[in-house]
Amino acid sequence: METETMIEVRDVTMRFHMNADKVLSLKEFVTRALRGKLKFEEFTALENVSFSVQKGETFGLIGHNGAGKSTLLKIISGILKPTKGSAVSRGNVVPMLELGSGFDMDLTGRENIFLNGAILGYSEPFLKDRYEEIVAFSELGAFIETPIRNYSSGMLARLAFSVASVVNPEILIVDEILSVGDASFQEKSRRRMTELMSGGTTVLFVSHNLDQIREMCGRVLWLDGGKVRMIGGAEEVCNAYAGA
């Protein structure tokens, strides 16, 4: 097995300056600053988290709501800069954090494929090349030329998944997405995921569904209150998590 490290998270700490309540207006800011009440509460979302993911691995992330999973994913995909420590990822990261966040409701499905593809970092020739494939996978047919504000939520999810998964990304970040569309599309997307994983893609997988984690992941990290509670084989960590 290849042991090329794709993601290296070293001693990452993330602290947010949380104002007791967000000051979003100048007047509020000035009056508070004058009264000396502009104090920040520190909130530590992640503390000294370290791990690495090897190439081709499917790495699971579990933890309760607010444990820091999403923050960790954002740090890995470069959206957030950690307060301390470093997160290095080699290769292009395709985040499937929330599908279709780059969609524009006034554009047609076709235009959105190109827009969303560009946002995910695909090149133009690549998209043109794979355009038919994306449309076919989404099963949208003639609706592809309709503005997507007329789509049902299932159709939107299908389009988004099709765009995001057409590429063979080096690192794929999956945050609770295998529940899109109807049963048959869910099955299809699961197959597509398995296909990607066997194709050498490194996958970071976040889910609350322990069965899914057990089925798909090799190793799992359990985050609890921003700290690493446990890291190890899927079966072992899932059992501990379920028991806690």
């Binding site: 524009d104 006034d106 554009l107 235009e111 190109f114 827009l115 560009a118 946002i119 970092g121 695909y122 090149s123 133009e124 503005p147």
Partner: peptide
């Protein structure tokens, strides 16, 4: 470049879309 072009095209298309 491609992303910039797409975003510009989006702004422009949606501005007068309807």
């Amino acid at each position: 470049r491609f992303l910039i072009r797409q975003l510009v095209a989006r702004d422009f298309k949606t501005k007068y879309k309807r």
